[in-house]
């Protein structure tokens, strides 16, 4: 429908990926603010079956976009399919979850449609009828209010966890499901998928740990890790890390916490020398008690922590280890 807001549902093994409901929740907020109808577009292999689940949410209708060329996912046919649908129906806004897959193809769609694309949005509000999209540039240190400039469809992707899937209201009756006719016969699929697999070496299951001591870039070099290992041992906890530590191969990848690593919620989480980029925070912010030790008082990690020590970790950590040993008698 011309002027509508579309919330695009990403499928994972034929099921709506959880974050897609967050996108619907964001879409409901935007639709209410702008007085525009919200529709869901289910895109990919098995979209017809998945559409029934999405139709339970409060949306005007669910559009099904499926074609044999969409299985397995590759960017060319995905881009072509949604471009054709957008050109046919001319929605005003097209919303996505900010997933790895969305990052792989939605910028192509933006360029193909000559559309603006505000990515990784955490909130939306309307200032005098004009929607404002809030992002967190500079590794989450700052907020930016963004607006669209110029005409054309407007694309937005929402950061995981910015909206809650449970807030995506259910409709009184299931929404209408319609098949969106698209012709991909002329579309060349240039990417060839050889193998999709999980690395077998994920040996450490940090999600079961009661206490986690996580170390970040602030540790400086691999030789300094002993300091933090000692603290983890004194607390009877597991050692973990933020992405840069694993990128530098100071610790193996299976110790990594965050969006590209493990998601944990231990009783006690100590973040040592971790500034708290959003990619890390999403993996640990639901922990019971969070302690942050960092030299930068403005580091975003302090915004999720319960207790903070602003100081040199090379002084604080040994002092803490000694105190913990004394207290626990280890």
């Amino acid at each position: 429908m011309a002027g509508a807001i579309w919330a695009v549902t990403q499928l994972e093994q034929g099921e709506p990926k959880g974050v897609s409901y967050e996108t619907i929740a964001a879409g409901q907020k935007l639709a209410a603010a702008l007085g525009k109808p919200l529709e869901s577009v289910v895109l990919g292999a098995g979209a017809r079956t998945a559409a029934a689940k999405v139709a339970a949410r409060k949306v005007e209708r669910v559009r099904v976009v499926d074609d044999p060329k969409l299985d397995p996912y590759t960017p060319d046919p995905y881009t072509a399919a949604l471009r054709l649908a957008v050109e046919a129906e001319t929605p005003d806004y097209v919303l996505f979850p900010h997933t790895y897959q969305v990052r792989d193809w939605v910028p192509r769609l933006a360029a193909a449609l000559d559309a603006g694309f505000v990515s990784d949005v955490i909130d939306v509000r309307a200032d005098g009828g004009e929607p404002v999209f809030v992002r967190q540039p500079f590794q989450g240190k700052l907020n930016a209010d963004c607006v669209f400039a110029g005409a054309g469809p407007r694309l937005v992707s929402f950061q995981a966890g910015a909206f809650l899937a449970d807030d995506a209201q259910k409709g009184e009756s299931p929404a209408e499901i319609v098949d969106q006719a698209i012709d991909l016969s002329g579309v060349e699929v240039r990417t060839q998928v050889l193998d999709t697999f999980q690395e077998v070496e994920n040996k450490v299951d940090l999600s079961r740990a009661d206490v986690i001591v996580a170390v970040g870039r602030g540790i400086g070099k691999q030789e300094n890790l002993g300091l933090v290992e000692e603290l983890a041992a004194a607390l009877g906890g597991q050692l973990a890390a933020s992405r840069p530590v694993c990128d530098n191969e100071w610790l193996p990848m299976d110790r990594q916490i965050g969006s590209s690593g493990q998601t944990v919620a231990p009783r006690l989480y100590l973040a040592v020398g971790i500034s708290g980029a959003i990619q890390h925070l999403v993996g640990m912010k639901n922990s019971g008690t969070i302690v942050a030790i960092n030299k930068d008082a403005n580091a975003p990690i302090f915004s999720v922590a319960d207790y903070g020590i602003v100081g040199d970790l090379f002084e604080v950590v040994p002092a803490l280890t000694a105190k913990v040993k004394e207290t626990r008698g280890v």
Binding site: G116, Q136, N143, A144, D145, V147
Partner: peptide, 13 residues
Amino acid sequence: RRVEVRRLYVPEK
């Protein structure tokens, strides 16, 4: 540009 930053600020904690 198609997207404009209207305001940049330190987030409220």
